[in-house]
């Protein structure tokens, strides 16, 4: 492992931790969904660095793509329900 590779892995790791904390703390649901998709992307990169390309494939397709769209649909339904209640 060269120092460059250490820097690469460290950057991916720190970004993932920061993204996860921010994803849990953010208020707006749509922003949270976008952060989740970005987190899934970095997660796939982390799987690639762990030399597991098949899991990276599944993570990119299911973890970030399909789950992101499903969460988006759920957030839309939730915000619409709340909007009908409030006024």
């Amino acid at each position: 492992m060269t120092p460059m590779a250490w820097a690469l892995d460290g950057a991916i790791m720190i970004v993932m931790i920061v993204l996860a904390v921010r994803l849990l703390l953010v208020r707006d649901l749509y922003r949270a969904v976008i952060l989740f998709v970005v987190f899934g992307l970095f997660m796939a990169l982390a799987w690639v660095r762990l030399e597991a390309p098949d899991i990276a494939l599944a993570e990119a397709a299911v973890g970030a793509g399909i789950t992101g769209v499903l969460l988006l649909d759920a957030a839309k339904k939730m915000s619409r329900g709340r909007g009908e209640e409030e006024p």
């Binding site: 796939a44 390309p53 494939l57 990119a60």
Partner: peptide
């Protein structure tokens, strides 16, 4: 690891999927 090119292909479709959904 040539199989990473397939992961790249999925990545390129993922961005399109997310943006179309949004």
């Amino acid at each position: 690891m040539p199989s990473l090119r397939n992961v790249a292909l999925v990545f390129s479709l993922l961005a399109t999927l997310a943006i179309v959904a949004f």
